[in-house]
Amino acid sequence: MNELVMAVFGAMLLIGAIGTVRSHDPFDKLISLGVLVAGVMPFLADRGYLDVLAATALIAPLSTIFILMAMRREGHGP
């Protein structure tokens, strides 16, 4: 992969991590976590682990949905 493209995706990963830590609303945290997951995926594709990429991309929303289940129980809404 090109060095510039790799730098852009690495910066996206760090932006997602810092945005997750800095935001206060749990929904904002989950959206920033989605940016972090999107930044991880091209690094998996760059090494050639396409099967790991497919499995991880299908498992990662499950983790978000479990956290959303806890948030719905606690009554976080608009």
Binding site: A17, T20, V21, P26, L30, L33, S63, I67, A70, M71
Partner: peptide, 9 residues
């Protein structure tokens, strides 16, 4: 909940 979301990083 905040700790659980931060634990994903």
């Amino acid at each position: 909940l905040t700790r659980l979301i931060h634990l994903e990083i």
